[in-house]
Design a protein around this nucleic acid. Structure first.
Lengths: 139, 139
DNA sequence: ATTACTGCAAAGCATTTGCAGACTG
DNA sequence: CAGTCTGCAAATGCTTTGCAGTAAT
């Protein structure tokens, strides 16, 4: 993750610091969303204190660099680079692995909320189930 | 909400207390999910302390009487009676009103996670947008 | 009576914030 | 150098828990 490549991402007027570079780098090299704590653990503290990581994640989110999500009944927020690829997730109920879903059911769907005159602007879909590996292990 | 009707819901081996009756009654008469705090406020303290409400909600959830959800970027858990009606929600981005969606896009959809051999057992869908009232108010 | 339930207060997480010092541009 | 960012520690908001007292069967 050399600085040149990262600089492509960098928004105007945002200072480059070791911590921010580090957080961006980790996000760039991960394809599943991470919690702030996971990022903290995964960076060997190069990304700074936990509070700094939270601040950086909020900054990135505001600048449109990252997106924040929540998964199921978990209470920790997940962050990932915004790759603009309209992703959804399947979550394994056994090992909690997170798997990207390639296609989206909403593409050809018009939700029936018209009677309320609701203007749909986006959606969030999450599949629950059991991943192949865990399924095999089941008796 | 007389006791007779509520007793239909009551699971075996669970004691009937004023607090539990009260929580069940409020849930029964509401069609949008509520937070523990909302329940607390709405019951005039008949449902007991906040910690009791949390305990009751967890009990109901374990007994299959209620279901727990999370909405978008909110961090508070929502609870509602489990009416087994496969509901989804549309959430207004302005006033945060929650509206039930009548039909489900997943009915005729097979998600493309087969390559991972993922066994889909359920899903969660949430629409984001602006409700009719808020839309009108926008300049 | 026995056993389970409640209230209170304190503890636990994830996340946010105040402030003084450190670093970027 | 000026303005911003970071670290630390304390504060917050939601939720859980320990314990002693209270109520249900």
């Amino acid at each position: 993750m050399d600085a040149k490549k990262l600089s492509v991402f960098w928004p105007e007027g945002v200072k480059k610091t070791r911590q921010r570079r580090c957080v961006l780098s980790v996000l760039k090299n991960t394809d599943t969303p991470l919690t702030a704590a996971e990022l903290y653990g995964r960076t060997g503290k190069d990304a700074g204190s936990l509070s700094t990581i939270y601040r950086i994640l909020e900054l990135f989110t505001q600048k449109g660099l990252a997106v924040r999500t929540f998964i199921l009944d978990s209470d920790a927020a997940l962050y990932e680079l915004d790759r603009h690829d309209h992703k959804h997730y399947a979550v394994c109920m056994v090992c909690h692995k997170i798997i990207a879903v390639k296609n989206c059911p909403m593409e050809a769907f018009t939700p029936d909320v018209k009677e309320d005159n609701f203007h749909v602007m986006g959606h969030k879909l999450e599949l629950q189930g059991i991943c192949g590996e865990c399924y095999k292990k089941l008796a």
